[in-house]
Design a protein around this nucleic acid. Structure first.
Lengths: 146, 146
DNA sequence: CTGTGTGCAAACTCTTTGCATAAGT
DNA sequence: ACTTATGCAAAGAGTTTGCACACAG
């Protein structure tokens, strides 16, 4: 609670500044959590994680920050499951597994899925992104009865 | 109370019965709207459409019915955009265009997209479905300024 | 008749917003 | 100092649920 030295990691400050965002303590904390690797989080998850690790950040700020990050091109928004919105820190072209039982999103490792015979974009439109989601369910046992 | 002849289209009654659903007036009306072709609707859209065409159905019943239809395998649920849930009357394997400006989903015509180099499902899981969504944005004019 | 479906309104979840306060430059 | 971000609580969208009444078998 004292917090004598705000300990903003200078690297994340610069990271934010270069992205055109004012480097506040909250943003630096979230950036630090997010950009240590490829992650897929909901706002709520990130908020809980921040709280757990001692950062005092409101949920509204987590939402605001994620949207700022999205506008700055630092994260991508994934629509994978009804209500929940996932944010993906890997903004490059890649695909996802979605574990329907665990509500978990993971990148498909290395394996570049090839897409062939793609349609042309309709008149007046261009392709912004192609999302491929492989939805997974627990494998049925061979001993299934019914 | 009046309602002398309920005018349930017999074909949709049978359709529902075969799907294991009790053929109520509301369900028949919704089935008739839905299954005349391949459609992508939200509950709200379907409710408005039903209301507009004179059927008195509550939004809650539309939701209930869509979920019953899904459980019966008559429609598929699409997670394409944050909040809104789309229901697709085409339950076969096919892919979608999503017009981000108009919030509109359409089947990709004929064109079977080929997927190659697919990863194996992780241990203990099997692939339930592969969703491919091509997200479209209006084409930038060549005269774009900024 | 018996049981399931429907309608309504209230509850719920996730997300956004308005405004006073706090923090960054 | 000036501007922008934050926190809170309230509002908002979309969806679900509980319960009394209505309808199908």
């Amino acid at each position: 609670m004292t917090n004598p030295a705000p300990r903003l990691r200078p690297d994340f400050r610069r990271f934010l500044v270069r992205a055109g965002l004012r480097p506040t303590r909250q943003r630096a904390a979230l950036a630090e959590m997010l950009f240590k690797g490829d992650r897929h989080v909901t706002a709520e998850e990130l908020h809980m994680e921040a709280t757990a690790s001692g950062s005092r950040i409101s949920l509204a700020t987590v939402y605001n920050t994620l949207h700022h990050f999205r506008q700055a091109g630092l994260v991508r928004e994934l629509a994978i499951e009804g209500q929940r919105t996932y944010f993906d820190t890997n903004t490059s072209n890649h695909n996802h597994f979605y574990f329907e039982d665990r509500h978990d999103v993971v990148d498909i490792p290395d394996n570049e899925i090839g897409l062939s015979n793609l349609p042309r974009a309709p008149e007046g439109y261009e392709i912004a992104h192609i999302d491929v989601v492989i939805r997974l369910v627990p494998k049925r046992q061979t001993t299934t009865k019914i």
